[in-house]
Amino acid sequence: MARPLVADIDLDALCHNYALARELANRSRALAVIKADAYGHGAVESASALESLPEGQRPPALAVACLEEAEALRKGGIETPIVLLEGIFETQELSRVEALGLWMAVHSEWQVEALLSYRPARPIPVWLKVDSGMHRLGFPPEQVPAVWARLVTAPQYATDLQLMSHFATADALDSAYFDRQLECMRALAERLGAPLCLANSPATLARPQAHGSWVRPGVMLYGSDPLERPSAASRRLEPVMTLRSEIIAVRDLAVGEPVGYAGRWRAPRPSRIAVVACGYGDGYDRHAVDGTPVLVAGKRTVLAGKVSMDMLTVDVTDIPEADIGTEVVLWGRSRYGAVLSVDEVARYCDTISYTLLTGILPRVPRRYRRRA
């Protein structure tokens, strides 16, 4: 019998969340971000599900971080255009960009020089990255007009040239810095007559003024709410990954008995403790504190004791039906209908959903399903 821990991936939920992004930004084209193996969900499988949507509903383009991620998609049979969000890392990569039919971001002077020296057989769509305030990648706004002029007069790149930037605080309630970045990009776009791609997941959900020609939903596609305070739109997101396991042992403890390494948790009453097949060797966060929520047989309970490499322990004192083989959901949707948000679990681990979703390790099998 196989170890019971699996990551169930609901591809219909993925398609629902993409449809929500399109609905919210119905005057924009929606780039589907599937970098980092689709945030741990499986890039080829996720891209295939999105690519199989009816014409007019599927993404006009996908986005990844690097050439290797794009090559894996092409090898997996994905034909949709793919944007390299960080562009190339070496000049020699341009021939592979052309051969694979990729689009690419340009954020540095050396990349511009490499592009202008290259003569592709067909134009390569270019997304010119602007540092409007994130201060990671991109050209300072004052340098952008000159770079734009060089690219727009090059016939191999002039046909499909976009301006893009990234918001630092689109998820926050305070909009002052967001407004500053947006105004910077609007002024540049008006001056250059350029199409804009600005809105990440939080801006797609909550900042319609930033939607522009393109939006690029990322973590929201996987059912995680990136907003500081949930909105009516973000509450419509559906979880895509359910990290599901089972109870493999049950222990009865007297008052004061410890559980796990260092005895961090001690029974405050006569208690039943369930051992679950899941640990940090699977990617569950070792920093999860006592009280981190868990679903057992569809009922909420809590982590009791430190997470081990292969196991963790939960308090099932108030769930008398819990026994060996009972379903345990670490995050996602229980077979009983209850849902535990990965965002809530992340808060108990002092982290964000991105790290939990991308941190599930290879020994956890992914199980893909469609509801139809």
Rank of each mutant, 00 (worst) to 15 (best):
L151H: 06
A168T: 09
G138L: 00
R266N: 01
P125S: 13
V106P: 04
R58Q: 05
I248F: 09
T351Q: 14
L94A: 06
L340Y: 04
E51P: 14
Y280L: 02
S353R: 08
W127N: 02
E190A: 14
F139Q: 02
A149P: 04
C349W: 09
A172E: 15
V307E: 04
T292A: 12
R22T: 08
A36D: 01
Q156L: 09
R251D: 07
L356E: 01
P230S: 08
V276I: 11
A47H: 00
I82V: 11
W148N: 05
L151P: 09
R286M: 09
P362I: 02
A149K: 14
D323G: 12
A274K: 08
L221V: 06
L303P: 10
L73A: 01
E51F: 10
G138R: 00
P268G: 06
G223K: 07
A233S: 12
P230I: 06
E79H: 14
C184L: 14
R191P: 00
A114G: 12
V276W: 02
L5T: 06
F89M: 11
R150Q: 11
E257L: 04
F139T: 02
V339T: 13
V44M: 05
V316F: 10
E238T: 11
M1P: 08
R136W: 00
S175G: 03
C197T: 10
G133S: 05
V6T: 12
I248L: 09
A72I: 11
A38P: 07
P365D: 11
G212F: 10
P141Y: 02
I34S: 07
C278M: 03
P155K: 02
G260T: 13
Y222F: 13
L356A: 11
A158I: 08
R371D: 07
R370C: 12
L161D: 04
S95D: 14
V328D: 04
G218H: 01
S28H: 01
L356R: 08
C197H: 15
Y284R: 03
D285Y: 11
Q143W: 12
G56Q: 02
A36I: 02
A206C: 13
D8T: 11
I88K: 02
S231D: 09
E321S: 14
L357T: 13
S234V: 03
A203N: 03
P230L: 05
L163Y: 03
E228M: 13
S48M: 09
T159E: 15
V259Y: 00
P120K: 04
P320F: 13
T326E: 00
P230A: 12
G359D: 15
E86K: 05
A47F: 05
A297C: 14
E45M: 13
